[in-house]
Amino acid sequence: MRMERLTFLVLATIVGLLSLIGSTQAQLKLGFYAKSCPKAEKIVLDFVHQHIHNAPSLAATFIRMHFHDCFVRGCDASVLINSTSNNQAEKDSQPNQTLRGFDFIDRVKSLLEDECPGVVSCADVLSLIARDTIVATGGPYWEVPTGRRDGVISRSSEALNDIPPPFGNLSTLQRLFANQGLDLKDLVLLSGAHTIGIAHCQSFSNRLYNFTGVGDQDPSLDPRYAANLKANKCRTPTANNKVEMDPGSRNTFDLSYYSLLLKRRGLFESDAALTTDATTLGLVQKLVEGPIEEFFAEFAASMEKMGRIKVKTGTEGEIRRKCAVVNNS
């Protein structure tokens, strides 16, 4: 009996140690490629510095792409996978149809494959590009621990279900963020990326022309702002021109997005939703009143948190050789 108990204890200890080692290995870490591909992060950064100023608006695209990727199956670059004859991928789902810059990512990945074949994941490439392009265009810096592996599944339907929609109310947004381990503070801070974004009229035209289905306008939208939109970029219900999320300041990562929310000038219903709850409204007001440095630090913390959502590490997934297709496809 004693021997059996001793054997059980020894086995339990071994299992415990193995699980501890496994969980340690599964964690992302700064400098993950220090030995396996020492120049990896510099290759990404150098490419960004060489090319982002030719198209600075891509910074907003990449941070949105990173966000959309992490909300579906975790941060595993599944948003980069092409559709096939028998599968419509996330990339072609309605929330992702205005994403661009995939060739930029492919070019960085190609350089990394030349340097260290089969080592650096597309998930890490996307995470690093999102950070580096934001910093290169004057936005906040955040740490990007690496070691993510790439997913092999990408489904359009999951993107449609999991990505927070522009017409979402606070309850919907809170639920979708909570599904990813993010809270209301993260919702407010990550929405701040809209300070450099653009939208298309179709994503909010119902607020201008048919809010409740009877040809009315959203009463929560500032009437003068709505009139300006109707007179210029969104002249008809079917117009689909680009509109700055943060008019007059779209190229500067600043606090004006939050100031506009308090003036009822957030473009999306999901933007306006941040002012419908005491907690989120209080956070918006605090950001507007505080120094920009505080926003940058808080935003960085939420980005680091988002970048860890359901990551694949260890032996999960794969390291895709090309970001648009799974290996052996």
Score class of each variant (00 low, 15 high):
residue 45 L to A: 05
residue 288 V to F: 07
residue 253 F to Q: 01
residue 218 D to P: 05
residue 185 K to D: 08
residue 29 K to L: 01
residue 175 R to W: 01
residue 29 K to H: 09
residue 155 R to P: 04
residue 89 A to V: 00
residue 210 N to F: 01
residue 17 L to H: 02
residue 6 L to Y: 15
residue 192 G to P: 03
residue 43 I to D: 09
residue 226 A to N: 09
residue 274 L to V: 04
residue 103 D to C: 10
residue 125 V to F: 06
residue 213 G to N: 09
residue 315 T to A: 04
residue 220 S to T: 15
residue 199 A to S: 15
residue 154 S to G: 13
residue 163 I to M: 09
residue 140 P to H: 06
residue 175 R to F: 01
residue 285 Q to M: 10
residue 2 R to Q: 13
residue 115 E to W: 04
residue 113 E to A: 06
residue 89 A to F: 03
residue 216 D to F: 06
residue 39 K to V: 11
residue 153 I to K: 08
residue 309 I to G: 06
residue 58 L to T: 06
residue 136 A to C: 02
residue 234 C to F: 12
residue 298 E to Y: 02
residue 232 N to D: 08
residue 195 T to D: 11
residue 209 Y to H: 09
residue 317 G to W: 00
residue 149 R to K: 15
residue 114 D to T: 12
residue 106 D to E: 12
residue 309 I to L: 06
residue 23 S to V: 05
residue 72 V to T: 15
residue 67 F to M: 03
residue 110 S to Y: 14
residue 263 K to R: 14
residue 97 Q to S: 07
residue 277 D to Y: 13
residue 227 A to M: 12
residue 129 I to V: 15
residue 61 T to W: 04
residue 227 A to T: 11
residue 179 N to M: 06
residue 199 A to D: 10
residue 198 I to F: 14
residue 160 L to T: 08
residue 159 A to K: 07
residue 68 H to F: 11
residue 302 S to I: 04
residue 15 V to S: 14
residue 282 G to D: 05
residue 181 G to L: 09
residue 282 G to M: 05
residue 317 G to N: 06
residue 138 G to A: 07
residue 272 A to G: 13
residue 131 R to L: 02
residue 140 P to S: 03
residue 265 R to M: 11
residue 167 F to S: 15
residue 116 C to Y: 09
residue 48 V to M: 09
residue 130 A to N: 03
residue 289 E to G: 15
residue 84 T to L: 00
residue 291 P to L: 03
residue 150 D to W: 14
residue 204 F to M: 06
residue 165 P to T: 10
residue 255 L to C: 07
residue 87 N to Q: 06
residue 43 I to E: 09
residue 179 N to A: 09
residue 181 G to N: 11
residue 95 P to T: 10
residue 20 L to D: 03
residue 212 T to V: 08
